[in-house]
Design a protein around this nucleic acid. Structure first.
Lengths: 211, 211, 211, 211
DNA sequence: TATGAATGAGGATTCATTCAT
DNA sequence: TATGAATGAATCCTCATTCAT
């Protein structure tokens, strides 16, 4: 019986490894080539047959869903860690922004939104957690007087998303040279006192979500 | 014969009008649906047959090339107009940035780079003109002490590109609500005195071009 | 202009010929191999590329729809001709049954029902016409005392359908050797006076339709 | 060792049960969805893994073979029972026809023929037995003057097959409402005296087999 | 032996591009 | 020249069958 269990287990171990390889390959492929990269290419990169990919993920949607969920969870962890570990409020915000960038959230946010089931309870939960953490980061920084008051959660999230996306027509590595500089410049623009008046109104997370 | 000539003439006029319709349709379609939008869809939007599109543009590359060149020219004009008309150096820069955004340069820059023949003399010319104008805008602002000295031309161009791209999974109109706010925040971050130290080195236009 | 028109026309003539070739090929292929025959095979049999088939018919449904509609119209014509031309009531019915068989209605009825848009007005019309004609054929025969009274329209239609379907695993030609014999035996069973009592109730056209 | 033996035994018992479950599931699935139903679906319906199905049956052919053989044996039993138990000759024939229908022979005859190894000795035996029994049923009825003399064994078998097949595009249950009525009408047509002249010649079992 | 997983081949469909009128 | 139509290559996805545990 122990043998049988081990057998069952090891079959599962193999499959699990494949699953993770596929997710990793998909993540890279999505970051490099966008959300329409051929699934066969992902399968190939993962070193499995194309049908294996379909065994694990019914369709592109499902794969995107999983990859994006992973990313979102990692970002949320970064936000929570920054809250916990960083005494200075603006520094915590800054740290979160740069760490989120390292997660390639920009590249993956396209996935987060393209054909994401926004009513899936897991997704809703993940969003609420992320929203809560980043809201606290911003509230803290605003209260400490370091963050200009006329910016909202959505402003930050959109800017992170946009500034960390692969530069069009550019090899992937390239964007990493730039994005931290540009996020830093953006963060400098976020600092109080505001150096200009902004058009429109602060973008909230709802705006962001419902885009 | 006079009739034949007139016919030929009017045919040429028609052809020109078709060409421009196609370019306009392509511009809109690229902005709305990205650089992979079906060419048939562009032809349809332009109100011509698909083969007519191919008569004017050998392939997608060529169409992209032309559309992107148009855009680049318009942006260059904006930069030059800002130089000419705006006495305050930083204000000129600011004006250029927002006007470039209105040209949807972000959406179109994906085109600018995807399979662009960078050695085409016309392209080289256009680039040099754009580079010259924006360099002067930045130099002026730097000299007037309003622009932090640690940023380069490429920093600005990449940020404009990224912040004005359509937000992933978002209806096109949505991005216009955001982009001017975010560009403004970025501009605030560009102002002297610098509020932080930037990682890496200033991104030059060469970096930008060779990406 | 005459030339232009002829050109346009002849382009259309070509396309029309292709369309008809595809329909004919589809008809044969459906009869021989059933409704799941590969569309590529139909295209090949029609002597056109696979995409040409898709230009004419958006998907399998549409092709089936057209082929089945053709068939139904032909059968209806047969029913109406039998009504018009055959003085003897049962003979008219008999003639209709055998002619419908020659249309391979059995083979094609699978198509008539598999994924047929029953609410399409054209389909509704065609059905009503067919129903009306066959109802009159049966009413006439019942009134003349030649048709047993305990059978309905649906009984006849289902039996025609079933007895003219390709015999499973059989080359197509084979069924034609049998079907007229078996339809004739069935017709003999339909004659008054009834030689037995039937279970259930007469199958109406509604039963047939809503199956 | 006794334990090992018991294990082996129970393994064999399990295997036999699995085999039978698969056959039953296959029978249902074939009747409901036709001979191309995915084998995985059959395995799932049988509650076994797909590979278990392949352990028992090398491929679809073999499974079809077995299922069809089962069916044929049951029909043969029905024919023999009718011969033994029914004193009236035509009533015996009638009883056989309706019982064969209940075996869903129509649905399964598609299997009987599609890729059946007709030279397999078991198949030959089964056929000979079935042929003998039904021939006697028909001979008896012909001799008693109740069956028209111009019909052959194959006429009957084909008609049973066709009239009991699932009506195209119809839920399975539906056909059972019809088939007994239509078989009865057909049987009425078979009764002597013949009410019409049949085209062609009586279909023999050989015709049927070699189709 | 039984199983879940892996795989490749095949069919449906789309789209860039070419052809014929 | 402008056009509708034709085409083949590429992609998604399914399924029969094999493999490894």
């Amino acid at each position: 019986m122990a043998t049988a269990e081990r057998k069952a287990q090891s079959a599962r171990v193999d499959a699990t490894r494949n699953r993770e390889r596929i997710i990793a390959a998909a993540r890279e492929a999505f970051v490099e080539h966008g959300p329409t990269v051929p699934l066969d290419a992902i399968a190939h990169r993962a070193g499995v047959g194309n049908a294996t990919l379909y065994r694990h993920f019914a369709d592109r949607q499902e794969l995107i869903h999983v990859v994006a969920s992973y990313s979102m969870a990692r970002i949320t962890e970064q936000a929570e860690a920054a809250l916990d570990e960083e005494p200075d409020a603006f520094e915590a915000l800054r740290r979160f922004v740069h760490r989120a960038a390292d997660e390639r959230v920009g590249a993956l946010c396209s996935l987060l939104f393209e054909g994401f089931d926004k009513n899936d309870p897991h997704v809703v939960d993940a969003r609420l957690r992320l929203e809560a953490a980043v809201t606290r980061l911003m509230d803290n920084a605003r209260e400490s007087g370091e963050l200009r008051p006329d910016v909202g959660l959505g402003d930050l999230m959109v800017a992170i998303t946009q500034l960390t996306r692969p530069v069009a027509g550019t090899a992937c590595a390239q964007v990493e040279r730039f994005m931290h500089r540009h996020l830093q410049l953006f963060l400098d623009g976020l600092r109080a006192p505001a150096r200009s008046e902004l058009s429109g109104t602060a973008v909230t997370f709802e705006d962001f979500e419902t885009t």
